[in-house]
């Protein structure tokens, strides 16, 4: 029920994310107004590769410290050229505004000597409305 209220508040405040194909994550910028103790953001990670990849979603603060957010789902397999929605609910933690990074991470070719982790981070700014 709480999640529902959070989502309703976020949507009422105008947070409408639109999925876009062939991107690693969309949107990469956003500003949210919320009337509850948390705010919700929906992002759309996409797999531009011709193979299935494992994708992880992480939430960080401005200093790249992990944020205790609820991510649904946080780890998943994404088919080639596919995209899927991921819901991130972040508590304000008593603050009136909060800046977070939501990052999509993947290592498309694991088990190599030097692996490259591709990380696409979106920056989001949330305001707690009284």
């Amino acid at each position: 029920m709480r999640l529902f209220r959070t989502l309703a508040a976020a949507l009422a405040a105008g947070l409408i994310s639109v999925a876009a194909a062939a991107q690693s994550m969309s949107p990469m910028r956003g500003e949210v107004n919320s009337f509850t103790d948390a705010f919700a953001i929906r992002v759309f990670p996409a797999n531009p590769y011709d193979q299935k990849i494992k994708v992880e979603i992480h939430v960080y603060d401005q200093d790249f410290q992990p944020v205790d957010a609820r991510i649904s789902p946080s780890v998943f397999q994404l088919a080639s050229q596919a995209s899927r929605p991921v819901l991130v609910v972040v508590p304000f933690g008593g603050a009136v505004e909060r800046k977070v990074r939501i990052c999509t991470e993947s290592i498309p070719f694991p088990n190599q000597q030097t692996q490259i982790r591709a990380q696409i981070c979106g920056k989001f700014f949330a305001h707690r409305k009284p």
Partner: peptide, 26 residues
């Protein structure tokens, strides 16, 4: 269009060791 970025890893790297064995580098 909002700011977007796509990264596609094409190849991973390979490191080799230097003759003095103090550098392992691509």
């Amino acid at each position: 269009i909002t700011a977007t970025c796509a990264l596609v890893v094409a190849t991973n790297g390979t490191m080799t060791v230097s003759p003095d064995l103090q550098s392992l580098s691509s």
